[in-house]
Computed example of a mutant assay.
Amino acid sequence: MITASYAFLPHIRASVVIIFKSVGYSMACVLVWRLQRAEGDDNAAARQLICRLSGRQQKRGRKESAPALLAGLSILLNTLMLLADYTPEELAHLAMVVFNPL
């Protein structure tokens, strides 16, 4: 009897996860939208860096696109989280281990 009354809990948890992910995605889209429309040299440099991080090619005459900015923003955030956990020296050592396994 008790298990039947709590059977809906996994569905509620899944719904909450979907809601939180949607909010996170919406926040990233708003950030990219704001960055695309911002003027100034610093904002242009930030857009160029983020597009470069994405690794996506742009059409001729187009400096950046929203999908490239979203992909680059994801890579930038992951890189910042990585730098918060490791020092540059530790990352260089790990890179040497990965690229020179012998």
Rank of each mutant, 00 (worst) to 15 (best):
M1C: 04
I2R: 14
T3P: 02
A4Q: 00
S5H: 01
Y6L: 04
A7D: 01
A7E: 02
F8R: 03
L9W: 03
L9T: 01
L9G: 00
P10W: 08
P10L: 00
H11R: 12
H11F: 06
I12D: 07
R13Y: 05
A14F: 06
A14P: 05
S15W: 02
V17I: 03
I18V: 09
I18R: 07
I19C: 10
I19G: 08
I19V: 11
I19N: 07
I19Y: 10
F20L: 12
F20V: 06
F20H: 13
K21V: 07
S22R: 13
S22Q: 10
V23Q: 09
V23M: 11
G24H: 10
G24V: 13
Y25P: 00
S26A: 07
S26P: 00
M27L: 08
M27A: 01
C29V: 08
C29A: 15
C29N: 14
V30S: 06
V30K: 09
V32L: 04
V32N: 00
W33M: 00
L35C: 09
R37P: 00
A38V: 13
A38T: 15
A38D: 08
A38H: 12
G40F: 08
G40R: 07
D42Q: 11
D42R: 14
D42E: 11
N43Q: 07
N43P: 03
N43Y: 07
A44I: 09
A44N: 13
A44C: 10
A44S: 11
A44Y: 09
A44P: 08
A45G: 01
A45I: 02
A46E: 02
R47H: 03
R47S: 06
Q48L: 03
Q48S: 05
L49Q: 00
I50G: 03
I50L: 02
I50C: 02
C51K: 09
L53M: 01
R56W: 04
R56G: 02
Q57R: 12
Q58P: 08
Q58V: 07
Q58K: 15
R60Q: 15
G61W: 01
R62N: 00
E64T: 02
S65C: 04
A66Y: 12
P67S: 14
A68P: 07
A68M: 01
A68C: 10
A68H: 00
A68D: 01
L69R: 06
L69C: 10
G72I: 09
G72M: 08
I75H: 15
I75R: 15
I75Y: 15
L76H: 11
L76I: 13
L77E: 13
N78G: 15
T79P: 10
T79Q: 14
M81I: 07
L82V: 05
L82H: 02
L83S: 06
D85S: 15
D85C: 11
D85P: 08
Y86W: 10
Y86I: 06
Y86M: 09
Y86E: 06
T87C: 05
T87L: 02
P88G: 04
P88V: 13
E89W: 03
E89V: 07
E89F: 06
E90D: 04
E90I: 04
E90S: 08
L91N: 03
L91A: 04
A92C: 14
A92K: 14
L94G: 05
L94W: 09
L94A: 11
A95M: 11
M96E: 15
V98G: 04
V98C: 11
V98A: 11
V98R: 12
F99D: 12
F99G: 10
N100D: 13
P101N: 11
L102C: 11
